[in-house]
């Protein structure tokens, strides 16, 4: 199915650019790590677009960064190739007023799973959004889809099973590697603050130095800032050059919110942001 999807994607992008519907389409091209983002403005380049198991990255974050941000601000309409899971990020950005839905054209790819190296990504386990919803068009047939088995929280459960001392040792070990290159933040579609708390100097909340304490402060605060917003796309960990599973922190918060409040960030574009809602029957038993 993938090669047919790829051919159809190229045809459609070509049409959408040619008839002037779109100024640019952001999709995937082949790259050193399998794929990398590709900005297509010229129909002669549509053949560089690919669709395969290596299309793991969530490209949504580009909507808020140069050069797409400037193009959107200038009133252009922009195409984005998305998987069902990526749609959650798009939805949160729409909910939060960061993206004008009418200015983006979403090309949804029916997805049989993407790989992180040789294994299917954790985020693909038990995936419920193989057929993307809410797109302007969807490419791929809806039959013969096989849901990948497994638990997307497998890694978190493993760490959760550790006793407190073990868990602390685990995170100390992982976070001590952080060099504060901020690839995780720059890769995250939800990390769009104009001035990140790490850059604030009056007062300076977080140590600038990549010491263990400074790293812990940064990653823990980031996890809290993403509460109810993290869509578990794993982009932060994918971007990390030091192989730190930083997404476990934000996904753990997301899993807790789902468990306690039944809220899944970005699942429903019409839902209110999690921290902006209050219900009479919200559980309070976690407040101690």
């Amino acid at each position: 199915m993938r090669s047919e999807q790829e051919a159809q994607l190229r045809r459609r992008v070509s049409q959408l650019l040619e008839d002037g519907t779109l100024k640019v389409v952001l999709g995937y091209a082949s790259g050193f790590k399998g794929t990398r983002p590709l900005f297509v403005q010229d129909t002669r380049h549509v053949d560089r677009l690919v669709w395969n198991e290596a299309c793991e990255a969530n490209l949504t974050g580009y909507l808020l960064r140069e050069p797409l941000k400037e193009m959107l601000d200038a009133g252009n309409r922009i195409g984005l190739v998305v998987k069902g899971c990526d749609m959650r990020a798009v939805n949160v950005l729409i909910q939060e007023g960061q993206v004008d839905r009418s200015k983006i054209y979403l090309i949804g790819m029916v997805c049989e799973g993407v790989r992180d190296g040789s294994d299917f990504s954790l985020k693909c386990r038990n995936c419920r959004v193989q057929i993307p919803e809410g797109c302007d068009e969807t490419i791929g047939t809806h039959t013969e889809l096989e849901r990948l088995e497994g638990n997307p929280l497998e890694d978190i459960l493993k760490v959760k099973a550790m006793d407190l001392a073990e868990r602390w040792a685990y995170w100390k070990q992982e976070l001590s590697r952080c060099i504060k290159c901020y690839a995780c933040r720059q890769a995250c579609p939800m990390c769009y603050c104009q001035e990140c708390i790490t850059e604030k100097s009056r007062p300076q909340w977080i140590e600038k130095a990549p010491t263990l304490s400074g790293n812990i402060a940064y990653h823990f605060i980031r996890a809290i800032h993403l509460a109810g917003r993290c869509v578990s796309c794993g982009e932060c960990s994918r971007a990390c050059p030091m192989d730190i599973p930083v997404d476990m922190l934000t996904r753990f918060v997301a899993a807790t919110i789902e468990e306690e409040f039944g809220y899944i960030a970005g699942e429903d574009v019409n839902a209110k942001p999690f921290l902006g809602t209050y219900r009479q029957d919200d559980p309070e038993d976690f407040i101690r």
């Binding site: 960064r65 504060k180 290159c181 690839a183 600038k208």
Partner: peptide, 23 residues
């Protein structure tokens, strides 16, 4: 494609720019 992170700089064997800060 650049997202303005520092991975390429920090892992580069010749990049040497630095900041000075009081902790």
């Amino acid at each position: 494609n650049c997202v303005s992170c520092g991975a390429c700089y920090y892992l580069c064997p010749t990049c040497h720019c630095f900041d000075i800060a009081d902790e």
